[in-house]
């Protein structure tokens, strides 16, 4: 299991992933279980108000809150899971690169015959693996809920929504690695990624209800995860491209910058 940087990173992930999985599984499972009780309140849509209301923004701008797709989107995709998947990647991206550099273990690691960019790519791949594992857990949690209560929803779409969630998470991971590779500073790494996450959330959620600012959501990574309504429509390929593209560019730029600069020692 300690064959290379990738497997060693996976091994490091074992414990945190187990705990996160427990939480995520329960969350997904319980949300599905409580859906039937919301299903029976069709007036909910009236309470939430019309298309442009603030209430709608807080529930993820879903069209039909009482539908399974709308409910699951509002309760899982609009805030909770993106937040958790971003935080997971922010944490890993920071501690694995800028953090390891700051603590001093990177100087030992890179005295071994491992190219800097190889190390970075293996760590990124391990982040993708960890994030995908969490997505699988969320999917299994959702399935478990559906097995208990009757929810009429396309499992294929649910699965695709979680693939999108993985893409969103690792894109933020790539951003964190990029800042860490560039600056070597954990604080910058956390700061930039956190700021992009928060601004991205606000732009996507509240942009549409502000007159004249509807366009700002197109700048938000969150939009390219949820804007195409994945629970209803499945994975939007064009939108996914808007996550994968920057992700690839960020990782490539991270490798390039990291190879060029002095290690902070």
């Amino acid at each position: 299991m300690l064959r290379n940087v990738y497997f060693k990173s996976l091994l490091d992930l074992r414990r945190p992933v187990v705990w996160w999985s427990l939480g995520l599984f329960l969350y997904a499972f319980v949300i599905v279980l409580i859906y039937p009780s919301f299903q029976d309140i069709p007036e909910l849509n009236d309470i939430l108000g019309d298309e442009d209301s603030l209430f709608r923004a807080f529930t993820g701008n879903v069209e039909d809150f009482a539908s399974p797709e709308g409910f699951l989107t509002a309760e899982m995709l609009s805030f909770t899971f993106p937040l958790l998947f971003i935080v997971f990647n922010l944490w890993l991206g920071t501690s694995w690169l800028a953090g390891e550099e700051r603590r001093g273990s990177l100087e030992v690691l890179l005295s071994h015959p491992v190219r800097r960019s190889t190390m970075l790519l293996q760590k990124f791949t391990a982040m993708v693996s960890g994030t995908a594992a969490l997505a699988v857990v969320v999917f299994v949690g959702t399935l478990a809920g559906i097995a208990v209560v009757n929810v009429d929803i396309s499992l294929l779409n649910v699965m695709q929504a979680y693939i999108g969630l993985t893409l969103l998470g690792v894109t933020f991971g790539a951003l964190t690695l990029f800042v860490g590779a560039w600056t070597g500073k954990p604080s910058a790494s956390v700061g930039v990624c956190g700021a992009v996450g928060i601004v991205g959330y606000v732009a996507n959620t509240f942009g549409p209800i502000i007159e004249g600012l509807e366009w700002v959501r197109y700048l938000s990574p969150i939009y390219y995860f949820i804007g195409g309504d994945p629970m209803v429509n499945g994975l939007n390929l064009a939108h996914s491209g808007m996550l994968i593209g920057p992700c690839v560019v960020l990782v490539a730029a991270a490798c390039y910058l990291f190879e060029r600069r002095d290690l902070a020692v």
């Binding site: 001093g104 273990s105 030992v108 005295s111 071994h112 491992v114 020692v265």
Partner: peptide
């Protein structure tokens, strides 16, 4: 990378 294959290095300050 080729050089580091045949080196053993102990930094002055390090962590593991």
């Amino acid at each position: 990378v080729e050089i580091r294959r045949n080196i053993g290095y102990l930094p002055g300050e390090f962590a593991l």
